[in-house]
C-alpha cells in the first residue's frame, strides 16, 4: 500500500494534508535557496511524522520552516539551523541520522552484509575449485546424450 497507507494514516489521525510548503519566500541568492530547500527536506515534521518539513502543511511545520528560513537569512550556517531544531526536539528531527556510537551499526551494517556475501561467494568457489578440471566422465557423457535424446522425443 506504500504511500497510500501512509497518507491515509496521516489524514485520519492528524489531518495532515497533502499540500507541500507553499510559502512564498525570497532568497539572497540561488545557493541560499538550495540550502534552505535541502534542509527542510532532510528534517522531519513532528506532527505529520511521515513527512519532511518541506512536505508537511502542519502548523508547526510552517513555524519551523520559518525558523529555518530566518536562521539562514541571518547569515548563519546550516549546522546552526539544524542545531536549533535538535536542541529543541532531539535527533528525532533528523532524517539523516547522525553518525555516532548508537548509529554505528546502522551505517556500517550494509558494508558488513556485503562483505559477508562476498566472503560467501569466495568460499563456495574455493571449496570446489580444485575439482574444476573434472569434466564429465565417459559414462556420464553417455548418460547425458541419452537424456538429451529422451527429452527431445518428448
Amino acid at each position: 500500500m506504500s504511500a497510500v497507507v501512509r497518507m491515509l494514516a496521516l489524514l485520519v489521525l492528524f489531518r495532515c494534508g497533502t499540500a507541500a510548503a507553499t510559502e512564498v519566500r525570497t532568497f539572497q541568492d540561488p545557493a541560499q535557496q538550495q540550502r534552505y530547500e535541502q534542509l527542510v527536506k532532510d528534517l522531519r515534521c513532528l506532527v505529520c511524522q511521515n513527512q519532511s518539513l518541506a512536505d508537511s502543511d502542519a502548523d508547526l511545520a510552517r513555524d519551523l520552516r520559518d525558523e529555518v528560513y530566518q536562521i539562514l537569512q541571518s547569515g548563519k550556517s546550516d549546522q546552526e539551523a539544524v542545531k536549533f531544531l535538535v536542541d529543541r526536539y532531539g535527533d528525532f528531527v533528523l532524517y539523516r541520522p547522525p553518525f555516532n556510537l548508537m548509529t554505528l551499526l546502522l551505517w556500517i551494517s550494509p558494508l558488513l552484509l556485503l562483505f559477508a556475501g562476498l566472503a560467501f561467494i569466495w568460499r563456495r568457489s574455493k571449496q570446489q575449485n580444485p575439482a574444476m578440471a573434472a569434466e564429465l566422465t565417459a559414462s556420464e557423457q553417455e548418460r547425458l546424450q541419452q537424456l538429451r535424446k529422451t527429452t527431445q522425443q518428448q
Partner: peptide, 11 residues
Amino acid sequence: GLGKISVGPPY
C-alpha cells in the same frame, strides 16, 4: 531505551 532517531531518505 536508547532514544529516538529517524532514518529517512538521506540514509
